[in-house]
Design a binder for these strands. Structure first.
Lengths: 225, 225
DNA sequence: AACAAAGTATGACAATTATCATATTTTGTT
DNA sequence: AACAAAATATGATAATTGTCATACTTTGTT
């Protein structure tokens, strides 16, 4: 059983407010999991009964729409927590979490987290601020979905992916999404997404090499939005 | 200076957790306002420095998109609180709040609310749950915006308006939105909204009489979505 | 009552986006 | 290495939605 003290999740998340004793308690009750790319951490409607700490790997939070398409609501990085909203509302998950890369996560039971939550005011304020940030992000995202064209949303998403997940040595986006997943982020049909990518490619905004996407002219891309 | 004990807001909002002494303190520091239809309570980017209790009247929370159109993110009823997220994040308002009817609201300074928040655990849990509900609502709303057609969103919105704000004696929707505002809710051009309404009218799904909208066949409307 | 201004309605058309069909390429498995 | 399956790409076409022009109605003001 590994310690929680030096864990990346503790450095970036609400958990940074926990003291040594609380970290020890957490280390004792946590469960570590390895999750393969493509596998779910939890699914929409599932009772999660705790939170997940993302130690390594990226995952998508998505929701199945009535039309059968999976809309990606958010991407989650190492250092973040999953399942905080469900824990506080005491409700099943509203979104599914699926690994986009091989992942390492720890599960901490609800009862334990709620203890920290009630005892440690700084911790609960941290959780609260995170949820407030998510709410602001979701409102802004909603406005973009409602008011921007697919091309604008694609350009914004590509820049977001580079800013958030960085580039490889060759300059291509580090995060690898399938065309279907990218379409699921911007809220469009897979074919439309492919067509627009290939248009941006021909116009010199981006470069497509196999699955790799490289942003060539970010100023031009920004002007699209 | 009126009392807070019997106020409608106390019955429906997070404030129900406050005790008599806290209510007295709140009554002393609150400021009451009357806001005319069309006037703002606060605007996007404004530092609010407190929360607003909606005693009477309905307002819209909206955000101006880059294309110059106002997207309505949420409608707020009497009994609800405004500005909780900004208060906790200690940030300016992310959305504008504008009265859709003449309103009565009370303003409570941030310092006071934060005291309740820190002292009264039930109150802070209530606030937290409300924000969690908003987050779930925003995520769901986002998926609808991304995945449903304008016609589907219009049908859903009309049913939402009837469920949430009720009907007049003649069966028409109680809440009166301009076509532009309705378009701002569903995220489309005003002309498209008008055209679809008139199509639903001709097909017998709804009836348009001046500004009044009556839902005639809710089963059919539901099937559209 | 008269008038301007705003809101609602509709047509014509263009632009955007989805859908279906069909190649082509890549990936994974035996 | 060979093959099937999945992912990517592209064309053709239809459906949806936005834009601009214009007319009609309602509202509010003087």
């Amino acid at each position: 059983m590994s310690k929680c003290e030096q864990c990346i999740v503790r450095q970036f998340s609400s958990l940074k407010a926990l003291n040594k004793e609380e970290l020890l308690r957490m280390a004792e009750c946590k469960t570590s999991y390895t999750i393969k790319k493509g596998e779910p951490i939890f699914e929409e409607g599932e009772v999660t009964n705790g939170i997940y700490c993302i130690k390594d790997g990226i995952c998508k939070l998505s929701k199945l729409s009535d039309n059968g398409k999976d809309q990606i609501v958010k991407l989650v990085k190492p250092g973040e927590l999953l399942g905080q909203r469900s824990m506080i509302s005491d409700e099943p998950a509203n979104l599914s979490a699926v690994a986009l890369e091989d992942m390492e996560v720890c599960f901490i039971p609800r009862s334990e987290v709620m203890q920290f939550f009630n005892q440690n005011n700084q911790f609960s304020m941290n959780v609260m601020r995170t949820i407030c940030d998510d709410l602001k992000g979701a409102d802004d995202h909603m406005v973009n979905m409602a008011q921007k064209t697919v091309r604008q949303r694609l350009a914004e998403t590509l820049m977001y992916l580079e800013e958030t997940f960085g580039k490889n040595e060759d300059g291509s986006l580090h995060i690898q999404l399938s065309r279907e997943e990218l379409a699921g982020m911007i809220g469009t049909a897979t074919e439309s997404c492919i067509r627009l990518l290939s248009e941006l490619n021909k116009s010199g905004y981006i470069e497509l090499t196999g699955k790799k996407i490289t942003l060539l002219d970010k100023n031009k891309l920004k002007r699209l939005t």
